[in-house]
Design a binder for these strands. Structure first.
Lengths: 223, 223
DNA sequence: TTCACATCGGAAACAGTGTTACCAAGATAC
DNA sequence: GTATCTTGGTAACACTGTTTCCGATGTGAA
């Protein structure tokens, strides 16, 4: 896929018609388009060849332009990585949305947990980029954290509701519990991806065991 | 620290005296000494400047020799990383050894968990090298897994004993439970080190919460 | 002791990486 | 139409892991 970059491709039509008028606005809009094209190209490489294959040269090569573009649009590689991170957040949120909420909050928790595992399996490259430290330099900024929180909001709501209804103790802060669940499940996925837990079946068993241990403890008060 | 490399430094004395006799044996012994010196130099850089500072050039520079040495002794950088991994295992095992076993297995579990957290805090560079994916290429081989198992053997023994004494359900395999605990605690540490859990106090709170959730569930049958 | 052989390690190069300086070409504004 | 200013491609820089080449050095036999 080669993309020919024409900065002012649709300038005439925009000048002719709508609300976009000033040069700055047009340039900004096209910059935004450009950013999207670059992110898409990077995302394609990420999914096809893995995180370590996402190099500035390779992305620009796929676009048919020089590396300068990426630095003009994203400051540095980390800036591009942040956009990919946000893309991953969308995919994760989408995966959570597909989980139909069970009337039983415990079952709902198990379903969300399983969805998180499946996300890791289906989008390994994204997972490694986001949480696996594939880009060692990458630290989530405010926007990234926002995207993360949006993605796992389903989990937050579930725990918060269960606390309000007395199914989970409200002695601990909701955020602390959510973080504990998230981190625990992440730990299994990360250790598996690092090669410490054997094959996928063994790892999945450990994962389910972790979910059971956590949920048993959380919902113990209701029994 | 400059190290002058003399391959046959102590050859005469060895020829004069003890059990080491053939050329091959002497060479092997000195190769072993050399390996140790290189690993020590790499470990020093690791602890002083972090995992990303451990480059082949830097290590050889610290030794005052060329990069060739490292490739002669360890095949490639990953080979050196494996040795550093085993060094980290020793430190971790040592940290676990310092935990005085409590008569209460639940307390013992909490103490071991806390020791694991402290290891991550005190030896952050080692932790990142071992479990943080600081060297993306690094996958544990058989020897590394052996070292890991030795390190966490205390945890294995604790769970196994508790199962035999009926304090923990023996429906699940011991290995699965140990992996679940290990992975969960690792997840909190890793997410914290990646910048997802805020400052150290917030992360430690999540860590303790995770330990409480897991241990509550594990020791629930005894109540 | 001397000479052929094997080994060992240092210098330099190779193929990558992220990043930046420079400069020509083009678009913008008057 | 011209002056200005932005834009992006080329080539370089400073790194990385790794390999190739070759001289020096140690080894074993005559």
């Amino acid at each position: 896929m080669k993309v020919i970059l024409i900065h002012n491709e649709d300038k005439p039509s925009q000048y002719a018609g709508r609300e976009l008028k000033t040069y700055q606005e047009v340039r900004l809009q096209n910059t935004e388009n450009l950013r999207k094209i670059v992110v898409d190209a990077a995302a394609a490489i990420l999914q096809e060849e893995g995180p370590e294959a996402v190099t500035v040269r390779k992305v620009s090569q796929k676009m048919g332009c020089s590396t300068k573009i990426i630095y003009s649009l994203f400051v540095n590689k980390e800036g591009l990585a942040q956009q990919l991170y946000l893309e991953g957040c969308k995919l994760l949120a989408q995966r959570f949305e597909e989980v139909s909420p069970s009337s039983d909050p415990l079952q709902h928790l198990l379903d969300l947990g399983e969805a998180f595992w499946q996300f890791g399996q289906d989008h390994t490259s994204y997972y490694k980029l986001m949480f696996g430290g594939a880009f060692a330099e990458f630290k989530p900024d405010a926007e990234s954290m926002q995207g993360t929180m949006t993605a796992i909001s389903r989990l937050l709501i579930l725990i918060s509701t269960a606390q309000q209804q007395g199914q989970i103790s409200d002695e601990e802060e909701t955020g602390t519990i959510v973080s504990a669940i998230w981190a625990s499940l992440h730990g299994v996925i990360h250790l598996y991806m690092s090669g410490f837990l054997g094959d996928v079946d063994a790892a999945h068993t450990v994962y389910r065991q972790t979910m059971v241990l956590l949920s048993q403890s959380l919902f113990a008060v209701s029994k």
